[in-house]
């Protein structure tokens, strides 16, 4: 099997399978949540906070009052990582070309050196977060295999993408194939680990905002 064969497989059936597992997994996990339902609330809600659930979906992206100074490492690394990953996935010219080939949709890209820098920043942030996880007694207590697995499968696409772009370690075709495999691994793992927060956090934030909003405390 040549490197090109490997890349063809990575772009073809491997990607299809990974996407199928991903979509089925996300649908299953959403079903697992919503099928549990929620009892009706007979308590008369306060009227001064409509839409609190929807607002909380977005406002929770900001640190709560007084929290930044106690947890600057978690917050700043968290923001840098998420922003870097988002820019890399959706604004790298090569990725937009890939999405266009799959869906026909395209949008303007950011300059590649900028995306490259954001990937480096995201990887550094992941490194800081891992060090913090290993050193903070609270995080260490909460962490298990799933946390380290999630960390690794998130880092790999960033790392292999960076290496492919800079022609490091392996020949470009092989590296690109490895990059695709790492993305496929991420897609397969995401629905079944804490990485599912990508989807479920909008649900949990909505419930939080709704629960508090009914009581008149907009969050």
């Amino acid at each position: 099997m040549t490197h090109l064969d490997l890349l063809t497989f990575a772009r073809g059936s491997a990607l299809n399978w990974a996407l199928m597992v991903f979509v089925a997994g996300v649908v299953l996990r959403l079903f697992e949540i919503f099928s549990l339902g929620r009892k009706p609330d007979f308590a008369k809600p306060r009227s001064n906070s409509p839409g609190s659930g929807w607002r909380t979906m977005f406002t929770r992206s900001l640190p709560a009052q007084g929290m930044m100074k106690h947890h600057a490492v978690s917050y700043i690394s968290g923001y840098v990582f998420h922003a870097g990953l988002f820019l890399a996935i959706f604004f790298l010219a090569a990725h937009i070309a890939f999405f266009r080939s799959m869906t026909g949709l395209s949008w303007p890209n950011l300059p590649t050196p900028l995306v490259d820098a954001s990937v480096v920043a995201a990887m550094v942030a992941l490194g800081v977060l891992l060090a913090h996880r290993l050193n903070s007694p609270v995080k260490r207590l909460l962490s298990g295999f799933g946390d380290y697995l999630a960390w690794a499968v998130t880092l790999l696409p960033l790392l292999t993408g960076y290496m492919a772009y800079h022609h490091l370690l392996f020949e470009y075709t092989l590296m690109l194939a490895l990059h695709l495999f790492s993305v496929e691994l991420l897609l397969v793992v995401l629905p079944f680990t804490k990485l599912f927060h990508t989807f479920s956090l909008f649900i949990s934030r909505w419930y939080n905002g709704d629960i508090f909003g009914r009581k008149g405390v907009a969050s």
Binding site: S136, K194, H197, L201, I203
Partner: peptide, 14 residues
Amino acid sequence: APIASFFSSCVHCG
């Protein structure tokens, strides 16, 4: 459902 969404979302940030 709220509890299932809460546990699904926790990233163990502490």
